[in-house]
Design a protein around this nucleic acid. Structure first.
Length: 476
RNA sequence: GACCCCUUCGUCUAUCGGUUAGGACUCAAGAUUUUCAUUCUUGCAAGAGGGGUUCGACUCCCCUAGGGGUCGCCA
């Protein structure tokens, strides 16, 4: 049995995008499931859209999310190079082969010529495709133009009458008429191949067994199949993934959504949540389960269970899932992930024990990582109360509570959670004050707001000295 | 417009001819909690429409409708 080899083949035009992540993830899961290889190939044949640093970005995003690449530009491998601009010779060889066998031809039409041709076809409500005027050129005319260095492209000559039928692992048998296929450009006037040629040549030589890509490629698959046929190669198994959608059900776009994976990480989504969430956009096991680690996904994933229809990218569920992971991952892990946010906040978190205690209570109250920093400020900083809260603090009942507590705390040092727990009920009994009247002044004095964690935790985190200080400060 | 793909709660989905159509998110109510949050319980909510096939269709077939994708010297 042939080795399972799949590739993720983005073009380096920016950052890893949510749709790309989903494709990469399914590639990865599929490869792992069958003990195969996950290959990264950079499709940089469009020289106009190159973005500097994009390759490094792609690799670092993938790596950060634990989608480990088996072969790629940074790792090398026996099927390299893994960057298309370094494989030009190979494409030219095969373009020549196609030219010689009559499956491809030179085209000297200018983009203006093509524009007017298409406009005309549109007006006449014809199918818009290249009208093959350059195919009429004689061999002599072609060589003359070539010799004169006229700019030209190479086009693939599609068969006139042919039914393309192929099997897609997700969609079953798909049929398309060759008449619907244009004579696609396979080599551009700058000498670079288009996607169609480059992908087919590379998938062949890199021995890709399954092509997993977005559904937007479905309609150009006949061209690719034809290329395999003309070159005498065996085509891979096709797998066209359903699209990820905007809320209006159009293809996910940055016009309507944040689509940069990196930016979700920056916002404080955990990689575990992002992976889990994305995995479930289009795939689901038969059991009622929502939470999966990457390892579990590798085990459970199956391409047969990928849905056919597109999935709306819905942040509310991602938020929920992120909360789940924030609460369930080890405390130390959460502390580590929060570190950069604390760093930039300027808060002194050198007391690691205190920090962990804070994170432990904060994690139950947030959905995004940076909110931990925001929440923790009640313990690290003091803030001025607004007038209404200050009034509450200043009233007689409040002052009674605070004074009682200050004295009792000082009489019971050092405090621990049990002692505080007892103190709270003792105070209630002694003062005959309860509920809001009792707790609100304490919270306002200690953390500057009316809502917060329970008293034992609050006292514990603040520490005896800080408790005394804050109580004292609140007493008139 | 042509071609192709798709169609179960608002969203992500389970169901592989027989179920009170299940779960999750959201929302609502309740319980726990001094409060906030967490957690738990309950509730609201779906097979696009029309024909077949069948004893029986969400499930199979056809038609219609709707949505999406593609139609580039972009991937």
């Amino acid at each position: 049995m042939k080795e399972t080899r799949v590739r993720f083949a983005p073009s380096p035009t920016g950052y890893l995008h949510i749709g790309g992540l989903r494709t990469a993830l399914y590639d990865f899961l599929f490869a792992k499931k069958y003990n195969g290889k996950f290959v990264l190939r950079i499709e940089d044949t469009d020289r106009n859209r190159l973005v500097e640093g994009a390759v490094e970005n792609l690799i670092s995003s993938l790596t950060q999310l634990d989608l480990i690449i088996d072969e790629g530009p940074h790792t090398g491998g026996e099927y390299g190079p893994y960057v298309q601009s370094e494989r030009l010779e190979l494409y030219h060889q095969h373009a020549d082969l196609l030219l010689k066998s009559g499956h491809a031809y030179h085209c000297f039409c200018s983009s203006e010529t093509l524009d007017t041709m298409r406009l005309g076809q549109q007006e006449r409500k014809e199918f818009v495709k290249y009208d093959r005027r350059c195919l009429q050129l004689s061999a002599a005319e072609v060589s003359a133009k070539l010799a004169a260095n006229e700019t030209h492209v190479i086009r693939l000559k599609m068969p006139d009458e042919h039914k393309f039928r192929f099997d897609d692992l997700i969609r079953g048998t798909v049929e398309m008429d060759a008449a619907q296929s244009d004579d696609q450009v396979i080599v551009k006037s700058d000498g670079f191949p288009t996607y169609h040629l480059a992908a087919v040549v590379d998938d062949h030589f890199m021995q890709i067994s399954h092509v997993i890509r977005g559904e937007e490629w479905l309609s150009s698959t006949p061209k690719h199949i034809w290329l395999y046929q003309c070159l005498g190669w065996e085509a891979p198994i096709w797998i066209h993934l359903p699209l990820i959608l905007n809320t209006d059900r159009s293809k996910l776009s940055k016009r309507m959504n944040d689509v940069s994976v990196e930016s979700y990480i920056q916002k404080g989504y955990l990689k575990e949540a992002l992976i889990n969430f994305i995995a479930l956009l289009g795939w689901h096991a038969s059991e009622d389960r929502e939470i999966y680690t990457l390892e579990e996904l590798c085990q459970e994933f199956s391409i047969e269970r990928v849905s056919k229809s597109g999935a709306v990218f819905d942040l509310t569920k991602l938020d929920w899932m992120n909360g789940q992971y924030i609460r369930s991952l080890p405390l130390d892990t959460i502390a580590e992930r929060c570190h950069p946010y604390f760093e930039s906040s300027g808060i002194d978190t050198s007391d690691h024990v205190k920090l962990l205690k804070i994170i432990d209570i904060a994690r139950e109250r947030i959905t995004l990582l940076p909110e931990i920093v925001e929440y923790s400020k009640i313990f690290y900083l003091t803030k001025d109360l607004d007038a209404a809260d200050q009034d509450i603090l200043d009233n007689e009942i409040s002052q009674t509570v605070l004074k009682w507590f200050l004295e009792s705390v000082q009489a019971n040092l050092p405090l621990d959670r049990d002692k505080v727990h007892k103190l709270v009920s003792d105070g209630m009994a002694a003062l005959q004050i309860k509920g809001k009247n009792y707790y609100t002044p304490l919270r306002l004095a200690l953390i500057g707001q009316a809502h917060g964690p329970d008293m034992p935790a609050t006292f514990d985190i603040l520490g005896d000295a800080e408790v005394i200080l804050r109580l004292g400060r609140a007493i008139r």
